[in-house]
Design a protein around this nucleic acid. Structure first.
Lengths: 334, 334
DNA sequence: CTGAAAGCGCTAACAT
DNA sequence: ATGTTAGCGCTTTCAG
């Protein structure tokens, strides 16, 4: 037989007070006489009463939970952002629903709808492809959203990010100094703003600044996965390419391992700069030189921004740009 | 002004039917005349009605969501399990709340309480330390729980896992063949059943089978983190140790990198076998030989088991053991 | 400081 | 095939 759950009503009866009073002590409302509060607390403990968050959510229209859509839980980039998000959420007493979107627009739409159906108070969106349909969904629901670690071309969705374009330019700058016009851009899908506009833009900026002619053959677009980059190595070398700025760390490690396994020495024969400074850059041998980003902070700041927007609808909604840096490790020559 | 939400009642009024009928079409109940169904569907579309999952959960006492407690989202081991969990959950129309427990018992207890307060229909527990307090929590709530990718010493919580002890024995067997009595066990915290009982047990089994005397100095316990293992390398060599079976992949890569960076050659001077066959084993150079586990399947099977237990309380509750294997890569000699 | 009562949006008997 | 009616467990005015 189902054990009868103890509800707020059970507690009220047992403590000889009204449900309202129990509700007050549970929610820390100060308008309760200390003696009453204690009595209620005792009964709660004795009965092991646990408030039902679903009922609470329905009655109060606030669930104190935020949805976090993450494209790939397996990817250290988003995973490290998630850490920052989680910590700040906990600090502000929000719970989190982490929802995997799998890099897939259809699935993303599905998980977003789920999140919204669950009445989350806000959402953190990680990922590069917020489709129009998804934006519509958010706007209709009138739920605050902040983008973390990417960029989206819509003023309604503020992003917490770094200046991808500038960072890319700086990385390519370094590479050009050693390798002149033999520097490639190895990128994930260019249809995403972050790649096609920002990072490619930075690549071109660097070329322009150094008077190197832009050569389409030097930008190689991939699906963003390790294996693709692994295969790529020898082709690049055959084309005379001597260095690459790579838009994500999976790709960077894949490229390097592919090169190394084919007897091409990094950095002597080929220089690589990675983008995200995830763990991967330090696990690899040689270790990857990389643009550095405050991954944890990106998540933390995004969550903090979201808490503000959940509490006060008219927070300004413009991107927050955090500082980036660069670290020279073993995949570049000084 | 808050835009007035459209509820099931709005739809009912607009479609000139009762709430019950709307509820029926929303839930795919066949007892609705096609014409009526169509009319309701039209209104739903026109009004862009979205059912409120919170209200539904309260009324039906089922949330169709399961909680997944994950110790470290950043760890590829649990992340890959999560993939399998997610896919099967989706297949069976359950939503997932991924909750980070951070390897911390206090935090784990907190997230478990949250999950339960949210009235999840079941939970998948990843992680090695299910404390008594947490077990109590689950039992009181009377919520089905399945452990994935670990083992817990309590018959109430069936685990989906491999035979850790046997796998460990096999790995150590190989190592002893080449390195006699110079084989270490590098482990995460031994207080966890999976390490202290299973893997250490397997290590001892192998020694016994090969008539090698057990030497306490050869089992080195760590906190399980990359850096600890990285530091460890030279000490092990100084002790005369020539090989190690390592209980997790972070540790294994750390150990190897520490060794390599100190000029010790793997596998020529030191052999390593890792436990989990995560991505890390393939990113590293040399690539790590490892016990192999069907990571995705472990998660998938766990979720499948959970769906059964959620629908039918009296599913048998014993562990499900999946097959493991072994792959020779570059950190062992043939 | 406390209680009564009206919902929150939906499901689930029970009627018809 | 459809409608009526109680709730689900809690928050929140509104009185007092």
């Amino acid at each position: 037989m189902e054990k009868q759950a103890v509800t707020i009503y059970t507690v009220a009866r047992e403590a000889r007070v009204s449900m309202a009073t129990v509700s007050r002590v549970v929610n820390g409302n100060p308008n309760v006489k200390p003696a009453t509060r204690q009595k209620v607390l005792d009964v709660i403990k004795q009965l092991n009463y646990r408030p039902n968050a679903v009922a609470r959510g329905l009655a109060s229209k606030r669930t104190t939970t935020v949805g976090v859509v993450i494209p790939d839980i397996t990817n250290p980039y988003s995973a490290e952002l998630a850490l920052g998000i989680d910590d700040i959420a906990t600090m502000y007493k929000y719970n989190i629903i982490l929802a995997n979107s799998d890099y897939d627009s259809e699935k993303t739409l599905k998980v977003v709808r789920n999140l919204l159906a669950k009445q989350v108070d806000g959402v953190i969106f990680m990922g590069n492809n917020m489709t129009e349909e998804i934006k519509e969904e958010f706007k209709n629901a009138n739920t605050p959203v902040v983008v973390a670690g990417s960029i989206v071309d819509d003023k309604e969705f503020p992003a917490v990010r770094i200046d991808y374009r500038k960072a890319a330019k700086e990385a390519v700058d370094k590479l050009i100094d050693h390798n002149k016009d033999h520097v490639a851009l190895v990128s994930g899908p260019l249809k995403y703003t972050i790649n096609g506009d920002e990072k490619l833009g930075g690549y071109k900026d660097a070329l322009a600044a150094k008077n190197v002619k832009y050569d389409e053959d030097l930008v190689v677009e991939t699906d963003g996965l390790y294996d693709s980059a692994y295969q790529l190595g020898k082709d690049l070398v055959a084309k005379g390419i001597k260095a690459a700025y790579v838009t994500n760390d999976h790709l960077a490690v894949g490229l390097m391992n592919g090169l190394t396994d084919n007897g091409i020495k990094v950095p002597d024969d080929f220089e690589i700069i990675a983008s995200n400074d995830t763990k991967y850059t330090r696990l690899a041998r040689p270790m990857l030189s990389s643009i550095t980003q405050p991954l944890y902070d990106l998540g933390a700041v995004a969550m903090r921004l979201l808490t503000k927007r959940m509490e006060d609808q008219d927070e300004p909604e413009s991107d927050v740009i955090l500082d980036h840096g660069f670290v020279d490790r073993q995949s570049t020559r000084g």
